[in-house]
């Protein structure tokens, strides 16, 4: 099993481990009783010391010949789709929902683009608000104890 170096496609999940990313592999499992398929999640920890993949990214992971630690069994091979930065694989253009970004920009220009509006060229890369406004890089929990300290991930 270990020597085959299998490649898996999965989604990165929030993870507190220092040099690993938690990857969710989702597949459909047949329930023979109901004759229906149901989602089944499998989690793998991939070695990722620089934390290249962020929560929600679609990544390829490759199986290591040997387990690095008790948990880490894979390495991150490639980030296929970063979350919220989708590229259409056929044309290679960036997409937002059902439209190309260029088309949206063109429409804005026709109407007269507002100066205060969001600009892709000026916008810094993802991750600058982590821990201040955007708490999606970790798992939130329901607050169960009041200890006087600040609990950023408590809801």
């Amino acid at each position: 099993m270990a020597s085959r170096g299998a490649i898996l496609l999965g989604q990165c999940m929030p993870c507190i481990k220092k040099n690993a990313s938690k990857i969710r592999i989702r597949h459909m499992e047949l329930d023979k009783n109901l004759n229906m398929y149901f989602k089944k999640d499998e989690y793998f920890f991939a070695h990722d010391p620089e934390k290249v993949c962020k929560t929600g990214d679609i990544v390829l992971i490759r199986e290591l010949p040997q387990r690095l630690t008790r948990l880490i069994s894979h390495t991150v091979e490639k980030i296929v789709y970063p979350l919220g930065d989708i590229i259409d694989p056929i044309t290679g253009k960036k997409v937002v929902v059902g439209k190309y970004r260029d088309e949206i920009e063109d429409a804005n220009r026709l109407y007269g683009k507002s100066e205060k509006a969001f600009d892709y060229e000026k916008a810094p890369p993802r991750g600058r608000l982590e821990g201040t406004r955007d708490f999606t890089h970790g798992e939130t929990y329901i607050k169960y104890h009041e200890d006087g300290k600040d609990q950023p991930f408590a809801v």
Partner: peptide, 23 residues
């Protein structure tokens, strides 16, 4: 956030919001 991450971050700053995913 899912569609356009950078725009989402920009919105959080503009509207002065905090986004926490549900548990």
């Amino acid at each position: 956030r899912r569609w356009d991450y950078r725009r989402f971050e920009w919105m959080l700053e503009k509207l002065d919001l905090v986004y926490k995913p549900p548990p």
